[in-house]
Amino acid sequence: MIDLLDNIIPAVLDIYAVLFRSGSFNEYLETIFHIRTFALRWKCKNYNKAPLAFLSDIFYWEQNNYPMKEAIKLFLVNFNNYWIENIHSRIRASTTCKDNANDIQKQAYLLDANKHSAFKEAFMNTKYYSYLPSE
């Protein structure tokens, strides 16, 4: 219970809001390891695969001197799941629970084909001002 209150709950609450967004790579990596250990201890099948995949990639890159680890270490805040979450939301919004796998895949391909318009919608907030820059 002490481990849960002192380590696990603060780790889960701080992992994204504090560690990831501040770029604290070493602390982030250590916290991922603690979360993975917690998920194994409590047999949380749905929560133990993502940390394992991340740790596996990091250790593989470190062992083979692959530059990706250094890129993540230097630019941690730039690596996020926005694109994945965005496309999943768009797929869910444009399909129904009655669609089969092929229909969902076709819809995903259509959404991906229109990704340039989705990019503009998501990131290009055009603002029109009544004054010119010279004014």
Score class of each variant (00 low, 15 high):
85 E>R: 02
81 N>D: 15
5 L>P: 02
108 A>W: 02
31 T>N: 03
50 A>Q: 09
46 N>F: 14
20 F>I: 06
112 D>C: 09
64 N>I: 00
80 N>I: 06
1 M>V: 03
96 T>F: 01
41 R>S: 00
71 A>R: 03
68 M>I: 13
58 I>H: 08
53 A>C: 04
100 N>V: 01
25 F>A: 10
14 D>I: 00
35 I>K: 12
134 S>A: 09
61 W>F: 10
87 I>K: 04
103 D>W: 05
68 M>V: 10
22 S>T: 07
62 E>T: 03
112 D>S: 14
133 P>N: 12
11 A>Y: 05
59 F>D: 05
103 D>Q: 13
79 F>I: 10
97 C>L: 14
111 L>D: 01
93 A>Q: 09
118 A>L: 01
1 M>A: 03
125 N>R: 13
15 I>C: 05
124 M>W: 07
99 D>I: 04
41 R>I: 08
7 N>S: 08
42 W>C: 08
31 T>I: 10
107 Q>M: 06
41 R>E: 11
131 Y>N: 11
105 Q>A: 03
58 I>G: 09
86 N>P: 06
5 L>V: 03
46 N>P: 15
62 E>S: 08
100 N>I: 00
27 E>F: 11
129 Y>N: 04
22 S>D: 11
96 T>S: 09
67 P>F: 09
122 A>G: 12
30 E>S: 14
67 P>C: 00
44 C>G: 07
6 D>K: 09
80 N>C: 11
73 K>P: 08
65 N>E: 04
89 S>F: 08
44 C>H: 14
68 M>S: 14
88 H>E: 00
124 M>T: 07
110 L>R: 12
30 E>F: 10
3 D>V: 01
115 K>A: 00
85 E>Q: 12
61 W>Y: 02
86 N>D: 00
106 K>H: 00
57 D>A: 01
13 L>T: 05
45 K>F: 05
112 D>I: 10
128 Y>N: 02
100 N>G: 13
59 F>W: 06
111 L>V: 00
93 A>S: 02
21 R>P: 13
9 I>W: 12
78 N>Y: 14
119 F>H: 04
104 I>A: 03
62 E>Q: 07
44 C>V: 12
24 S>G: 07
16 Y>K: 05
75 F>E: 10
74 L>W: 12
9 I>V: 14
11 A>M: 03
18 V>H: 15
16 Y>C: 12
11 A>D: 14
49 K>A: 01
135 E>C: 11
50 A>F: 01
129 Y>S: 09
129 Y>G: 02
123 F>L: 06
12 V>F: 02
7 N>C: 00
78 N>V: 10
83 W>V: 05
111 L>M: 06
12 V>E: 05
50 A>M: 09
46 N>D: 15
104 I>D: 07
62 E>R: 13
108 A>K: 06
102 N>R: 05
11 A>F: 04
94 S>Y: 02
78 N>D: 15
110 L>K: 09
110 L>Y: 07
42 W>G: 03
116 H>G: 07
4 L>Q: 01
134 S>M: 12
73 K>H: 11
127 K>A: 13
61 W>N: 08
127 K>P: 15
126 T>I: 12
